[in-house]
Design a protein around this nucleic acid. Structure first.
Lengths: 231, 231
DNA sequence: TGGGCTGATATTATTGACAATATCAGGGGC
DNA sequence: GCCCCTGATATTGTCAATAATATCAGCCCA
């Protein structure tokens, strides 16, 4: 009974490291899914109470989410949920589309069976979450799918940058995660992607990856400019 | 004599904000210019003494430089100067080249005279620093030149990502900032860039921007693989 | 003599108290 | 009545003490 690597009480549950991650996760979720509206203030004391965490962890979380671009921090003033104008959204998507296109073109076709298998498993998981209407689950499996797909490009730095932009657009895409129509389209496109991986048409794959972003992009742009919920 | 906005003693010199920036700057410089070798440990207490700063600022600086990718932090172990393998360097440059090419292609040609004027001023400054052999100055004016150039692409997010990768490759390029031959080549290429901005050949400009990185890239790769200082 | 326990040491992680700062409301001068 | 000054308040920024953790050398035991 050595237990040199399990210090203190072994039933202490979430270690400090997990606690930090948990605060970030919950704050991120609260922002992404609109529980904190864009522009609303994120007061440290409030968040400390809400998440039952110390100021240290809350601030760390705010720093992280500022880095990710979904929180805006002004010195000696405080943090707010960041809002992006239509122009900014277009610029962000422009880079995201460029990165996605380049990454897709770098995926060697036909892709190895192991990749196809992996994506099919993720896609199955994605569909399951979609049926359950679990927003968080949908988002996570969707991201896992794209991450696995683009990782096949072979350049982890490119994937990392792409992921940064995916995170940046997350608040814009969140509404679509709950949208029946968008969800169905997304599922279909995922399946076509898997099919294309079996072939040799890199250009078609790249084009589809770009196309895949258009629905949520225009939907979001319509929402913030027009103000009409649905036509 | 209101002085509502200059609290405490108005001769207090660097405010806290500046002090933080200064620690980051000095630590970054110590790493970039090789005063801390890759892999060497960055102990908080040591840095506190070296920069005369509190633990708070030193840690903040380590976080920042970890984000920038030049410091590696392991939980409960400490920070070290990050080292990149040849493969990683190639991957990093692959993304940087892609971003630079795309940004260059997006610059409307011929460029407005104001941009050309601005770049010529920066280039003049750059040459002045080069003649003075001021490493820091060379680096800063060089970055300012490229930043101004790529900013003309019109997409600040693309520029920001490009800047991230420029910072990432900074330790690899640093040796070349002191290199006579590399410096001369760099100066010539800058001038050709300015010339190309007056024309209409976007492709040539993009190609030159990519070419512009090759010298320091291969030099660095030679250095870490071969081990020979100079042929 | 080698493997692994055990304590000493080095280092980072966390915390809560305190300081600095911005914001806003209320009052006095013009 | 309007503007600026002033103090009160809310909020973030900084610090130094303390806790947690990993690392390493020395020692015991097989």
């Amino acid at each position: 009974m050595t237990m040199t690597s399990t210090p203190q009480t072994e039933v202490s549950g979430p270690s400090r490291e997990d606690e930090q991650a948990e605060v970030i996760r919950r704050l991120e979720e609260d922002i992404i899914f609109g529980r904190f509206a864009p522009g609303s203030r994120l007061v440290e004391d409030t968040l400390m109470a809400r998440y039952g965490a110390s100021r240290h962890f809350v601030r760390q979380a705010l720093f992280q989410l500022e880095r990710r671009g979904i929180v805006l921090r002004e010195k000696n003033v405080g943090a707010t949920v960041r809002f992006y104008s239509a122009d900014e959204v277009r610029q962000i998507y422009e880079v995201r589309e460029m990165l996605a296109r380049q990454a897709a073109l770098m995926i060697p076709l036909p892709a190895p069976q192991s990749l196809v298998d992996q994506l099919e498993a993720l896609q199955k998981e994605y569909c399951a979450q979609a049926d359950r209407q679990d927003l968080r689950g949908i988002h996570e499996t969707n991201d896992a799918f794209h991450l696995a797909l683009f990782s096949a490009c072979g350049n982890p730095y490119l994937v990392s940058s792409l992921q940064d932009y995916m995170n940046l657009t997350l608040p814009m895409r969140a509404k679509n995660l709950a949208d029946k129509e968008g969800l169905a389209l997304s599922r279909r496109q995922h399946e076509i992607m898997i099919d294309l991986l079996r072939g040799r048409d890199s250009w078609a794959l790249a084009q589809l990856c770009v196309e895949h972003m258009q629905y949520s992009k225009s939907d979001y742009l319509d929402r913030i400019s027009g103000g009409r919920d649905k036509s």
